[in-house]
């Protein structure tokens, strides 16, 4: 059991869903992104996804694209993700890295896994790596008890759900809709069905992401998922405010709104 699964199970024991917050490291700077992640934890995020900016983020919508682009222009490197992971775990929340495959591959899968363990990270979410293509990463992660978090989508067949669930530890990341990251006015209606199908394929923990941006959405998803994943709506707080204090205020307030959402009894 990892710190991540322990935390998810403890939260389930409280009779609620977990709030999982994503921010890319390096936006607007490495230091400020780390302070923002810690502020998010203080304001009620249970688990942090540390995003590693990538030059070709095909699963990301405009908000995260812009943040990632600016992080890379500012000279963000892979090692900065481990700095962020360390700070988040010290703040008391389990941390997972969310990374596209090529940076992990170029860093070296063994070295990536090792440095992630040393930083106190629980695992990694790989949006463009499916279990059937992940041999090297699975071996490196398993050897160190790191969680390998894969995605399922509304288009996943039953066979693919079984395959993905079998190779996933920590939680299965269910994409609420067919699309890229970004704020939306509602959460896809297919999310609940997908979570049910994923559980039927044997997944003990399923968290839902893509399009979740308000307390209302969080409460809705919390009815049927073990965790609610929010990215763009949090990144937006940092994009909208150049002043750090104002950005952190907005971030805390958004986090509190979402944290109330996952605790709402409906």
């Amino acid at each position: 059991m990892s710190a991540l699964t322990d935390r998810l199970d403890a939260i389930r024991g409280e009779g609620r869903s977990a709030l999982i917050g994503y921010l890319p490291v390096g936006f607007p700077t490495v230091e400020r992104s780390v302070r923002a992640m810690v502020a998010m934890v203080d304001a009620g995020v249970d688990i942090v996804e540390v995003g590693l900016p990538y030059s070709d983020p095909v699963m990301d919508g405009p908000t995260i694209q812009v943040a990632a682009e600016r992080a890379l222009q500012g000279g963000t490197h892979i090692v900065d993700a481990f700095t962020a992971v360390r700070a988040v775990t010290q703040a008391g929340a389990p941390a997972v890295v969310m990374s596209y495959y090529n940076p992990m591959l170029q860093y070296g899968l063994e070295r990536f896994a090792q440095d992630l363990v040393v930083a106190g990270g629980s695992g990694a979410i790989t949006p463009d790596l499916t279990p059937d293509a992940a041999g090297g990463w699975l071996a490196a992660a398993r050897a160190r008890d790191l969680d390998t978090i894969f995605l399922v989508a509304p288009s996943s067949t039953r066979e693919r759900l079984h395959l993905t669930v079998a190779e996933t530890t920590g939680f299965v990341y269910a994409a609420s809709l067919m699309g890229v990251t970004g704020e939306r006015t509602s959460v896809g209606a297919g999310a609940e069905r997908l979570v049910a199908a994923t559980r039927a394929a044997g997944a003990p923990r399923v968290c839902v992401g893509l399009g979740v941006s308000t307390g209302e959405h969080a409460a809705d998803v919390a009815r049927f998922a073990d965790g609610v994943i929010v990215g763009s709506a949090l990144v937006r707080c940092l994009l909208d405010h150049d002043d750090e204090d104002a950005a952190l205020d907005a971030l805390r307030s958004k986090t509190e709104e979402l944290a109330r959402g996952v605790r709402r009894r409906t």
């Binding site: 790596l129 293509a133 894969f150 288009s155 996943s156």
Partner: peptide, 12 residues
């Protein structure tokens, strides 16, 4: 070669 894509595209 291979196929390194989001799960959402695998079915297609």
């Amino acid at each position: 070669g291979g196929r390194f894509v989001p799960e959402a595209l695998v079915a297609a």
